[in-house]
Each structure stands twice: as structure tokens, then as C-alpha cells.
Write a protein that binds this DNA or RNA. Structure first.
Lengths: 216, 216
DNA sequence: CGTTTTGCAATATGTTCATATTGTAAAAAC
DNA sequence: GTTTTTACAATATGAACATATTGCAAAACG
């Protein structure tokens, strides 16, 4: 047999091309042939690593999900931050910001995320990926909020788990608005909105631009 | 020429079939031939009333957008309510509820809405429809909140327009979560979430189940 | 060293698609 | 009552699609 190949790596390469294509032209424009072309390989190769197109889409959705986590981890590492040390508000703020289309990279990923969400409506397998991702995010968010509560940054009476879910709902909706009405919902307004929302949860002062002054 | 035909009516009939198809099988499964079949007409008829498929999709998106407004109007009329009389909190609560997949009818429409949003990412014409719809909703919501503020239901210092946008972002995200993770985000949790969110805006007591007690 | 297995390219297949073309019956217009 | 216009059906067209099939070179394995 020929060179021993890292299967997972090859699959990742193909999926990478798929995600690029989706970000640029939308999920409807994704076909096996186009993905192969975008990846610079033959259709046969794609078939060799993915039995069906659906299998490829499934891995792609998983991959996109992981990228948000990756970016948060990168933020922690690049800043030399310690997860247990960074204030909960900063952490939550950064986590939510990673879900917003605040630069080209994130805009691409939100575009792709939204495309997959829409397809999930009619494809149970994709909906399952969404559900799992959501639960994990709620869990992470809950942990962060609880730490903040223990540190006195958040009122004691708050229903933390519900709050986590609501913050994520707000984030997804805001990201969608920013993506589809970018003319009105600018990056600045997005950041302001996030900070204003955090002001409803945290009693501690915000990390962001202080001039936002949203509350009474 | 044959019977004089109400063009707008025929177009609406075709679009109705398209929306049904989209709700059931997703926007990717929508083709001109399938829409014609679902509407019980020939492909030729569809072509007669829509020059292109995109034109058909555009009208469909507009139609879905209007349905939310329609349902809110129906709520006002059926309850014999007067727009100027009903408390702002009730009105906003109802408006947000109409965006949630709380029954089959609304679930279908949220499904379709999400599908079109996703396509809007790669189709400027559809994004424009979204943007217009969003701005109109923000305006309506702003009006309602301002009335509430004048009536003392809402703190005076609040940035009303920002609040309106944030409420809508929350609503869209929550609707998406409820649709894709219906196993965890049940209708009950959705209603609770909406009420909890309203509790962050209104000082007046809520209309919903009082046991939600989200805040400190 | 030869056999076998693997990685992949090339191409075939049959379907579905959006749209174009053509045809025709019916009623409005004159 | 003839002419013209309209509403629609039927079918054609060519591209794009997901997937199946075939073939072959290379390297791992005995």
C-alpha cells in the first residue's frame, strides 16, 4: 500500500476546505465536487475519507463548534492567564465575544455556525451536535458564573444555570443580528450590548469601555 | 384571455405551499417542482407567477415576517384589547412569545425563519429583508417600552432603544435554542426565560406564572 | 520479491435541478 | 366574430449533483 496516511489529518484538511467554502458562499453552495476543488484534491479522495456527504457535514459542524473553545483557550494562553485567577466577568465577556462576528475570522465562523443551525432544523444528526454543544457551553458558563458568585461578583440569589442559558441565547441572537444587519448592528454596538448585558449579571465593574452606561 | 386572475392571490397560494414545504423538510429540499407539487399546480404555473426561484423565496421571506405581526394583531383583536390600554409588559411579553416555537404553528414559522436567516448570510436580498424586519421590530418594541417607561413600569434611566434590540436578540437566540434543543429547552423553560428577562426591564409585576422567581 | 492491500484518480450513472421553449384553450377587446 | 392577449400545461435542455465503479501505482508485509 502507499504512504501510510494520517486519516484524521486528511479528513481535517477536507473539512477545512468545506468550512472555507461555506463561509464564502454558504452551505447551499457546498457540493462534494466543490469541496474537492477547494481542497485541491480529487472527488475520489473525498470519497475515500467520507462515505457520504452527510458524514462530512457532521464532522464540519463538530469542527466549527470546537473552534470557539479553541479561541477561548488561545486567549487564556496568549495572555498568560490562569483560568482560576481571571475575574469571572472577564472570562464570560471573552467567551461571549468569541461567539460574535467581531472580526473576519469570527464572522466566517458565525456564518458557518448559523448555516449548520439552519440545516439542523431538518437534520436530526446536526441538531444533536447543536444540542451537545449548547449543553457543554451552558456547563462552562455555569462554572464561570458560580466562581463569580463565590467571589461576590454576582448576587447570591441569582439562578445561575438559567442565567447561563439566557446569556448564551442572547449571544446567539446578537451574533445573528450582527451578521445579517451589519449595517446597523456594528461591532461597537455588539460589544456595548454584551457589556450592558453583563452589567445585569455582575455587580463588579466591567472590563470594557466604561462609557457604555446602559443602566439606571 | 382566460379568467382574470388575482395575481397576488395566486402568488400567495404558491408561497404558502413553499412555506409548508420548508417547515416540513427544510429550505434545502425546496425546489420549483416540489413547490408546484405541494401546491397542486404545474411547474408552468409557478413559472408564470415567478420569474425566478429567488423571486419566490424573497416573497416567502416577506410573508413569514408578516405572520409574526399578524399573530400579534390577532391577539389584540381576539382579546378585545386596546393597544394603548394594555400594559407594556403584557404587550412585550406577547410579542416575544409570538417569536417563540411554543406551538406547532409557531414552531413551523421559526423553522422557516431560521432557514431564511441562514440563506440571508449568502444572499444580500434576503439579508435586506431581515434587516428591514429587524428595524421595524426594534421600532415597535421601542414604542412599547417607552409607553411602559411613561407609565412608570420601567426605570427612567434605561436606554430604551438598546433595550429593545437586546430583547429581540435574546428572543431570536432563545427561539433557536428551543428549536434545536427542544429536548432540554422546553416550552415551559422558554416562557420562564422570557419572564425572567422581562423582570430585568420592568419594575411592574409580571403577567406570567409568578413562581419563576429568577432574581434576587 | 512478489503478493496484497491501500490511497487515490478517472470516469460512469442516473437523478434532480432551474429555466427555456412550445403549444393551446379561453376570454377579453374591438 | 375575429383578433389578440393571457393563463397555463407539457415537455425540452443542459448543468450540477451524490454516489458507484473501475483501474492503477505504490508501499507495506510476508
Amino acid at each position: 500500500m502507499p504512504k501510510v496516511i494520517d486519516h484524521e489529518l486528511r479528513r481535517a484538511q477536507v473539512v477545512h476546505a468545506l468550512l472555507r467554502l461555506t463561509a464564502e458562499r454558504g452551505l447551499d453552495e457546498v457540493s462534494v465536487a466543490k469541496v474537492a476543488a477547494a481542497a485541491g484534491v480529487s472527488v475520489g479522495l473525498v470519497q475515500h475519507y467520507f462515505a457520504t456527504k452527510d458524514e462530512m457535514l457532521l464532522l464540519a459542524f463538530h469542527t466549527i463548534d470546537e473552534r470557539f473553545d479553541e479561541r477561548l483557550r488561545r486567549w487564556l494562553e496568549d495572555g498568560g492567564r490562569d483560568l482560576a485567577e481571571v475575574p469571572a466577568r472577564s472570562l464570560v465577556r471573552e467567551a461571549l465575544s468569541q461567539l460574535m462576528p467581531l472580526d473576519d475570522e469570527r464572522a466566517d465562523e458565525v456564518r458557518v455556525w448559523l448555516a449548520f443551525c439552519a440545516r439542523g432544523v431538518a437534520t436530526p444528526q446536526l441538531a444533536k451536535v447543536y444540542e451537545t454543544a449548547l449543553l457543554r457551553r451552558v456547563e462552562q458558563m455555569t462554572d464561570a458564573l458560580r466562581r463569580g458568585q463565590a467571589a461576590g461578583e454576582i448576587p447570591a440569589g441569582l439562578d445561575i444555570e438559567a442565567e447561563a442559558l439566557h446569556l448564551l441565547a442572547f449571544a446567539e441572537g446578537l451574533a445573528q443580528q450582527a451578521l445579517l444587519a451589519s449595517g446597523h448592528i456594528t461591532a461597537e454596538r455588539v460589544v456595548d450590548a454584551v457589556d450592558a448585558r453583563l452589567g445585569r449579571v455582575f455587580t463588579s465593574p466591567g472590563t470594557g469601555s466604561p462609557g457604555t452606561g446602559e443602566n439606571a
